[in-house]
Design a protein around this nucleic acid. Structure first.
Lengths: 297, 297
DNA sequence: CAAATTCTCTGACTATAATCAGAGAATAAG
DNA sequence: CTTATTCTCTGATTATAGTCAGAGAATTTG
């Protein structure tokens, strides 16, 4: 990795630590310690369960409980037991809580304006664009790709989403039982594998491999959640799958795809996949691709 | 100010708060609480005085003292009294302190790498470029421009720097006593004014106005420190001076400049200044400019 | 339906990051 | 040469942020 890039990232981090410190002080500034303010914010206008809050802010349960008690005493929230599950407690903002939250909102706004205010119009636009770019790429770099059990909840969710998207996009709809099989056991080592991409623990994409004869592998279930598109995640999944295939001794990768999946077809073409004659009778496929893998490095 | 821009800044701040939190945890991670780590870092290889440290980190003197005591007890620093001033205490890292600091350095590096690592090469380059842009513009927005007393330390420093730069750039050198005067009292209300631009309390530029007859003003002492160039600061100073001139009822601004100051001449031309006949006999001037100001809004 | 798990809470405790008042020594200013 | 200021330190105290152990109630699992 190029050293100047690392230097730039470090310099950026220093600047951000300084500015974000200011941000937090301002955000807080108002009455509440940061913990309470964050919680107040996270509860939101619609309310939330205590366990939601704990999970979203990754805080200790004892700590959250105490913070809630404090907010309750200040009359900013009310807490009641869920009707569906007697263990779960639901938190809602009171009128005063909503006002307080609006105030925090206003402060965050004012802070953002104070950053833009000294700049000229063209600088403002450039700043916003560069911020969007940094954000997008940092978020991309937060995505983690790991091997998952196809029967796990996240894996099943991804595949479900994938099927439902195919159902919407294919002119004919999509019935998973008609196509080439990819049952859980076929996507589990040693017969294959499934990768799941996660952003902040939440699944945002998947991709699978089926190993055939000695050296032929088949790509299946390539999917990226709509909210995670444009992060280069498809390419990363593809590279990770190819790596895994190489590790397994695969030298030829096959895949077939439907003509409505234009982004995927683009990706395959750009990644060195050659269109070939149909090598199976997958009813939903219009294009068949193949890539010869080089030996693992 | 455009709302989407504010929204973008806020969204960016949220993302950064999340990431910087991670950064700090990692940075710290190692043995020391954040306060100690920051101090260890700030002392640097060359050492520093306690009052330097206090100023740079804007920490309470009691707090710094205690942190130093703790670092001292851990054998990471030695503190001794300054030879020049018996009140001042000098802090230096020991061998162990230097090792510890190198470790922090290494961790910051590793963190930066971990951000870049999941990205492809082109994404990395884009990220670094966007970070540089964000940093540059945020730093630009941190610069504050205020009216200053021409006899104040910061003002005198700026003007000194300005003169010394002119001395280097003019083929003939520069002797301030030969040119048109701009004595402190001429740059003090109601006869004129001096603006100083500061970044983190440090002066990084200046610009002055001399008020002549009823409605004519003269621009003097426009200077931006080398390290603050490329931030659009010259333009901001110019706009601020024009605003101040308008407030003072000025309708025509004059200025003269030397042909070696090409960036300044560019700036004047782009900001609506028209080149006119010489209106004075300033010996160092090659170009005379004039701008007609519209009424204050 | 017994056992395991989940969810929330209280009690007890700790570390960190401060802040304020003031003292003592050195130096600068008038 | 007296007075004011600067610099650092200690003592006393506080707020914030968080951890760990475990209890009690509700729910899920085998």
């Amino acid at each position: 990795m190029d050293m100047p890039l690392v230097e730039q990232v470090r310099s950026f981090n220093r600047t951000m630590t300084e500015r974000v410190g200011v941000l937090n002080d301002h955000f807080l500034g108002r009455n509440h310690p940061l913990g309470e303010a964050r919680l107040l914010w996270e509860i939101g206008a619609e309310g939330a369960s205590v366990r939601e809050l704990r999970r979203r802010l990754s805080l200790d349960s004892a700590y959250v409980s105490r913070l809630l008690r404090s907010l309750e005493k200040q009359g900013l929230i009310v807490v009641k037991t869920s009707e569906h599950d007697g263990r779960v407690r639901l938190v809602q903002l009171t009128e005063a809580g909503l006002r307080e939250r609006a105030e925090l909102d206003h402060r965050a706004d004012a802070f953002a304006r104070s950053l833009l205010e000294p700049l000229g119009e063209s600088q403002r636009v450039k700043l916003a664009a560069a911020m969007a770019q940094v954000e997008r790429l940092l978020i991309a770099s937060m995505v983690q790709i790991t091997i998952a059990d196809p029967t796990s909840q996240d894996a099943r969710w991804c595949i479900e989403q994938y099927f439902s998207e195919l159902g919407e996009r294919f002119e004919t709809g999509f019935d998973p039982t008609l196509g080439i099989s990819a049952h859980p056991h076929e996507l589990t080592p040693p017969d294959g594998l499934l990768l799941v991409a996660r952003l902040r623990e939440e699944p945002v994409g998947c991709g699978a491999l089926k190993f055939h004869e000695d050296t032929v592998g088949e790509l299946k279930r390539m999917w990226v959640a709509p909210r995670a598109r444009g992060l280069g995640l498809g390419r990363r999944l593809l590279l990770a799958l190819e790596d895994a295939a190489r590790q397994a001794g695969i030298t030829i990768l096959h895949l077939e795809t439907n003509h409505t999946l234009v982004e995927a077809i683009e990706l395959y073409r750009h990644s060195g996949y050659q269109e070939v004659e149909a090598f199976n009778d997958e009813p939903y496929a219009h294009h068949w691709f193949e890539k010869r893998l080089t030996a693992p490095t």
